[in-house]
Amino acid sequence: MTRIDDTFARLQSEGRRAFVAYVMAGDPDFETSKEIVRGLPGAGVDIIELGLPFTDPMADGATIQLAGQRALKGGQTLDRTLEIARHLRETDTTTPIVMMGYYNPIHSRGVETFLEQAKAAGIDGLIVVDLPPEEDEELCIPAQKAGLNFIRLATPTTDDARLPRVLQNTSGFVYYVSITGITGAAEAQAEAVAPEVARIKAETDLPVIVGFGVKTPETAKNIAAIADGTVVGSAIVNEIAQGKPVEEVLAFVKTLADGAHSA
């Protein structure tokens, strides 16, 4: 059992949906990023997605691309991203942290070394968007052997023939991408997402969390109501991009969390 498994078991026993928040590590700067991440659990976040900045983020829209550029310009590295996780673990040993990003920085570090360092820093799971199931031996299976969940994305184009392959080695939860395209591109619609969530849940006992296109407390509530929870990323990153104080960013996050938890 990982922290992710424990969190979903607790939420299920409480009859609540999960709220997952994405932030880019090192945005707008290293120290502020540490402060934001440390404040997320108190703002109602059940699982933290910590973005690992990368120079070519092909799945991300402009908001998160720019966040990654700000972070990299400020000197954010893989080591500094792990340091943000360690900083949270000084005060919080229960909130799961999922590192989300691309394979290149992990490959450059070396899979075995990276997994040892990630586990030691308190990372609980990985979402690596450019490693398909055909590459499971590369990172997915080693990660799970090391005790980290490997979370896979399913999308509107993941048909019935492809879905079992996507689910085969997934653990922790399934991340359903509610729209076709990049992050922040459109608003998720619960009536369109519901049949897809049901289709996935018919094939797995894992929780299904819906992300991409969730920008408001109302949408968070509507999407969480038809899934096991929801993810908000670009809307939070946009608050950070506007230079708002940490307390204002966290207050905004709380409105989203309250929306998801009211489902």
Results as ranks from 00 to 15, higher is better:
residue 2 T to E: 09
residue 2 T to H: 10
residue 9 A to L: 15
residue 10 R to G: 07
residue 11 L to W: 12
residue 15 G to P: 01
residue 15 G to S: 11
residue 16 R to F: 08
residue 17 R to N: 10
residue 17 R to V: 08
residue 17 R to S: 14
residue 20 V to M: 14
residue 22 Y to P: 07
residue 22 Y to L: 12
residue 23 V to A: 13
residue 27 D to Y: 10
residue 29 D to C: 04
residue 29 D to A: 09
residue 29 D to H: 13
residue 29 D to W: 07
residue 30 F to Y: 15
residue 31 E to K: 08
residue 34 K to F: 06
residue 34 K to R: 14
residue 35 E to L: 15
residue 37 V to R: 08
residue 39 G to M: 08
residue 41 P to F: 05
residue 44 G to P: 00
residue 44 G to D: 07
residue 45 V to D: 01
residue 46 D to C: 03
residue 51 G to H: 03
residue 51 G to D: 01
residue 52 L to H: 06
residue 53 P to C: 12
residue 54 F to D: 01
residue 54 F to P: 02
residue 55 T to K: 06
residue 56 D to R: 10
residue 56 D to L: 13
residue 59 A to K: 14
residue 60 D to C: 11
residue 60 D to V: 04
residue 60 D to K: 00
residue 60 D to R: 05
residue 66 L to H: 14
residue 66 L to K: 12
residue 68 G to D: 08
residue 68 G to I: 14
residue 72 L to R: 01
residue 74 G to R: 10
residue 77 T to I: 08
residue 77 T to M: 05
residue 79 D to K: 15
residue 81 T to N: 12
residue 81 T to P: 12
residue 82 L to T: 03
residue 82 L to I: 03
residue 84 I to L: 07
residue 87 H to R: 08
residue 88 L to R: 12
residue 93 T to M: 04
residue 95 T to W: 02
residue 96 P to M: 10
residue 96 P to A: 15
residue 97 I to E: 01
residue 100 M to G: 04
residue 105 P to Y: 14
residue 106 I to K: 00
residue 109 R to V: 05
residue 111 V to L: 04
residue 111 V to K: 04
residue 112 E to V: 04
residue 112 E to C: 08
residue 113 T to K: 15
residue 118 A to N: 12
residue 118 A to W: 13
residue 119 K to A: 15
residue 122 G to S: 03
residue 124 D to T: 02
residue 124 D to I: 06
residue 124 D to E: 04
residue 129 V to G: 03
residue 129 V to R: 00
residue 133 P to Y: 02
residue 133 P to F: 01
residue 134 E to R: 02
residue 147 G to P: 03
residue 150 F to A: 00
residue 151 I to W: 01
residue 155 T to Q: 06
residue 157 T to E: 10
residue 159 D to H: 14
residue 163 L to E: 09
residue 167 L to E: 06
residue 171 S to E: 13
residue 171 S to V: 11
residue 172 G to L: 13
residue 173 F to A: 03
residue 176 Y to I: 06
residue 176 Y to V: 08
residue 178 S to H: 05
residue 179 I to S: 03
residue 179 I to A: 07
residue 181 G to T: 03
residue 182 I to G: 00
residue 183 T to C: 07
residue 184 G to M: 04
residue 187 E to I: 12
residue 190 A to H: 03
residue 190 A to E: 06
residue 191 E to I: 15
residue 192 A to V: 15
residue 195 P to T: 02
residue 197 V to L: 12
residue 197 V to T: 01
residue 202 A to S: 13
residue 204 T to H: 12
residue 207 P to N: 09
residue 207 P to F: 13
residue 207 P to A: 08
residue 211 G to N: 14
residue 213 G to V: 06
residue 217 P to W: 11
residue 218 E to F: 00
residue 218 E to P: 00
residue 221 K to Q: 15
residue 221 K to V: 05
residue 226 I to K: 01
residue 229 G to F: 07
residue 231 V to T: 02
residue 232 V to E: 10
residue 232 V to G: 02
residue 233 G to C: 07
residue 237 V to A: 15
residue 237 V to P: 10
residue 237 V to H: 00
residue 238 N to Q: 15
residue 240 I to H: 07
residue 241 A to L: 13
residue 246 V to T: 11
residue 248 E to M: 06
residue 248 E to I: 05
residue 249 V to R: 00
residue 249 V to K: 03
residue 249 V to Y: 01
residue 250 L to V: 05
residue 255 T to Q: 11
residue 256 L to G: 04
residue 257 A to L: 11
residue 257 A to H: 08
residue 258 D to Y: 06
residue 258 D to Q: 09
residue 260 A to F: 14
residue 260 A to I: 07
residue 262 S to H: 05
